[in-house]
Write a protein that binds this DNA or RNA. Structure first.
Lengths: 214, 214
DNA sequence: TGTATTTTGTACCGTCTCGCATAATATGTA
DNA sequence: TACATATTATGCGAGACGGTACAAAATACA
């Protein structure tokens, strides 16, 4: 018996007993690889061949698992948002002093935007807004949701700070939040153009000073 | 003594006597059409066929006049920058009070970003930063130049205001300029996601108040 | 064991892509 | 008129693109 057994060392889908031939890929892992590619090159400049190579899935499997290229992009974006939310949520909820909290939020953001061995990848929400959001209503809705989520999180942040009297009564949490989001957007874009981290950190410092000097 | 030393030193502008078959297109006008397309869809999602149709030039003419697609993109971007500069320069140089000046600058920016019958086209510098700037060093250099140009113009603006005592001595023109640029970037991105003008104007108002509040 | 079910791998389809080769056309000049 | 020059118009060609048909492979279940 010359059978070359290629059993999956790790069960792809935890312990569920599936009926047919087992999957040779791990969906979450493959989606992460797809996200990496989309973040690097954008939707139009990423080919299914590259996606297939990066995920280790051949094209039919890719299609069966995630749908066509556009659906894969949407699912990748959802994954990005979930990851970013997971990284931020805890800091947003934290009870640290407002300055410390802002510093940590922007530091995590910079980590996300500057990561990538082939160059900084920026913010996927911003990239998607700049490219696909104009013509595709469904994607646009997701992007708008992304903006609102960030705005709201910042606004809540400032509202708490105001209650704790870390900000004067005259401070408007919504305006401050828009400024914080603007800072996020400008460092995301500049990161994409390879502006060095030091400069981006300087921008963040200036913005924080301005926001808290009230 | 050579009498035929008269090489066409003068550009073949309107009244110059060119040698062969006359052009059927106007280069500046065609470049404008190309820019429109690139702003709408980005580099990768714009095909030479579409460019050919929009400009009214067939592909070989397009190629002969502007080079390949990438060169055409670069020339389109240069044109965009020149247009934006022409629209802004005068306001930046003006002697209006700082608040009025900022209001006018942002209003013009919004006009640029929201124009386009097929949806708002955003800021081409921002779009290029998000897409081509990562992998293409030459384009990246142009984008960085675009960022600096805006930062410097704003900084100069605040410096003048400070000299005229419209700002307190403690105000840092560079930090304020970064905030102004950040506001430009955030409205450019949000415009691309079809956020209505009213909301963008509210963001601008909040930012100006924050910048000028002493 | 045999059958049903699910995924994989290969190979292909029609379409679009960019860039260029070639020939026709329209002008200035000798 | 005849020639040189510059542009237009047609269309080709090699490859990349997204998506899918089909059969082999690998599992669960009866």
């Amino acid at each position: 018996m010359v059978q070359k057994i290629k059993k999956p060392v790790v069960k792809p889908d935890s312990t569920a007993k599936r009926r047919g031939r087992p999957r040779a890929y791990q969906p979450e892992l493959a989606l992460g690889k797809a996200l990496d590619l989309f973040r690097k090159h954008g939707f139009a400049a990423t080919s299914l061949d590259e996606l297939s190579a990066a995920t280790g899935m051949n094209r039919p499997s890719l299609y069966g698992a995630f749908g066509d290229k556009r659906e894969l992009y949407i699912k990748s974006y959802a994954r990005y948002r979930a990851d970013a939310r997971a990284a931020m949520q805890e800091i947003f909820r934290d009870e640290l002093p407002i300055r410390k909290r802002l510093e940590r939020i922007f530091a995590v953001a910079l980590d996300i935007y500057l990561s990538g061995e082939a160059g900084p990848r920026g913010c996927f929400t911003v990239m998607t807004a700049a490219s696909e959001a104009v013509a595709d209503p469904e994607i646009r809705a997701l992007v708008l949701e992304g903006f609102s989520e960030l705005d709201d999180a910042f606004a809540n942040c400032f509202r708490i700070a105001k209650k704790k009297h870390e900000l004067p009564a005259s401070a408007d949490p919504v305006v401050l939040a828009q400024l914080a989001s603007a800072t996020i957007h400008t460092i995301a874009i500049r990161a994409r153009a390879r502006v060095p981290r030091k400069q981006l950190e300087a921008i963040v410092r200036g913005a924080i000073d301005l926001m808290l000097r009230a």
